[in-house]
Design a protein around this nucleic acid. Structure first.
Lengths: 256, 256
DNA sequence: CGACGGCGTTCCGCTCAGCGGTACGCTGTT
DNA sequence: AACAGCGTACCGCTGAGCGGAACGCCGTCG
């Protein structure tokens, strides 16, 4: 079905354009035309024209070495209302967290089986995390992911648990039963932890930002630090109350 | 010529799609179809289909009351390499500034005669600024704008100075001569100030992030606070050195 | 209450925008 | 000198996309 959609989408102009834009992964900065052709499966001539059109519409920049997602796209993305207000409202709380811990602070949402990081703030001495603003990570091996999954409906939960759980490090939890127990505990405690499950040397606490109903989670906040100088448990309370406060603000906002 | 482009662009699928996306201003969260029709000038049927396609491609969300820019677009925008690395590298310095001042901190770039704000960080008690992440302001009445304009080439400078300078507040500098003198001083001092020129009750200092050549500015950093508790001058040094340090980091990055 | 205006949606036949195979010129590499 | 990979340019066929028209559904008038 995914195949199906990919193929169908390439039959429309818009589909082709998006295929080109989405050919850029979180790590790619500039891609030559040939690479775009390879990744999208478009005909060379077509890719050339589409890319040209995208440049004309300021979604791509032309550089010496190929194409690059442009500032116009960045700006457009920043107009997305839901995500932006979330980030804006969260900022003061994230600042507080950073100031107290001086460790890396994340704000993320769940998209299916992955976490999308909306913001990441940190100082000069921040831990070397693989996460990036706009990047993704699997839900099952990150604190944010676990706490969001814990508040998802049963259906989505089992979908993730029954899928394969990729082993990222020796400590990644890949046993569905164990993970399920951890999630139950996370709901109870109001926080989830990660102990080097996505990346060696990284520890993390996360708390959910809940809707007024107290069940569904719209986002999650986390603090991440390196093994050695950082222990997540002492920050559980801080993170939890920051997330709760943000939830309250958002509830007030959507009502008023 | 702008007219020309608008009309031409509506003759292509991509143009229509972009017209719809760009119909969303920084302040709009959800727009009904009829409004999209009005703003884009597309035929009703066409707008309907294009919007539908955009939903299918996850650039728009369909809601009860109309369409909304979606998280997919947000994510895509965050992939724009140049802007994102700028934000990422800047973050630690912005944090430092915030921690020292506890006032609103901005990172912005210039796009023609306007400033585009890439990031805005602040705490709970931040001044009520009209700026928003992803938002724009005229160059001539903001500290960031002035310091960026001051480092632009003569051509661009005169273009802005010869255009009409919109009066935003009683203190907005609308005299080209005076503005030019301020800019000259800003280059010399390494910072520009704003005294309630864009918004009543707001003061601001900004410093440029320069290329290794020491001339062209790629971005600018500012600290903004409310008249009364905040004086910009004492922070000139801090802002200037933060911007300089960021410039150095970026220079090192692009070389290595 | 009936007429009306604005809304979102659907339909359909015409046409030209877009398609992609083909070919070319330019590099570096073998 | 032959080659391989790149970006670019050309061009005739065709179906994707176009937009005018018509429809059903509300509210809001007179």
């Amino acid at each position: 079905m995914e195949h199906q959609r990919d193929r169908d989408d390439l039959d429309t102009v818009l589909g082709k354009a998006l295929a080109v834009l989405r050919a850029f992964g979180p790590a790619d900065s500039v891609l030559p035309l040939a690479e775009l052709v390879r990744r999208t499966g478009l005909a060379k001539g077509t890719a050339h024209r589409v890319a040209g059109d995208l440049v004309h519409h300021r979604l791509l920049d032309r550089t010496e070495h190929g194409y690059r997602l442009s500032g116009g796209l960045f700006e457009l993305g920043l107009r997305a209302a839901a995500e932006r207000t979330l980030v804006e409202l969260a900022m003061p709380f994230l600042q507080d967290l950073y100031e107290r811990t001086h460790e890396t602070v994340h704000l993320g949402v769940r998209q299916g089986g992955e976490v999308l990081y909306l913001t990441k703030i940190g100082g000069h001495r921040q831990a070397r995390t693989p996460s990036r603003t706009g990047g993704r990570m699997p839900v099952h091996c990150t604190a944010i992911g676990k706490v969001l999954l814990a508040h998802a409906d049963e259906e989505e939960l089992t979908a993730v648990l029954s899928g394969p759980l990729e082993r990222r490090t020796p400590r990644t939890v890949v046993a569905p039963g164990l993970l399920r127990r951890q999630l139950a505990k996370a709901v109870e405690a109001g926080v989830a932890y990660e102990y080097e499950e996505s990346t060696q040397g990284l520890l993390c606490v996360a708390a959910p930002v809940l809707e007024p109903d107290g069940r569904t989670a719209v986002a999650a906040i986390s603090v991440t630090g390196p093994v050695g100088r950082f222990r997540p448990e002492p920050h559980a309370n801080t993170v939890r109350s920051a997330a709760a406060a943000l939830g309250a603000v958002m509830a007030g906002r959507s009502r008023g």
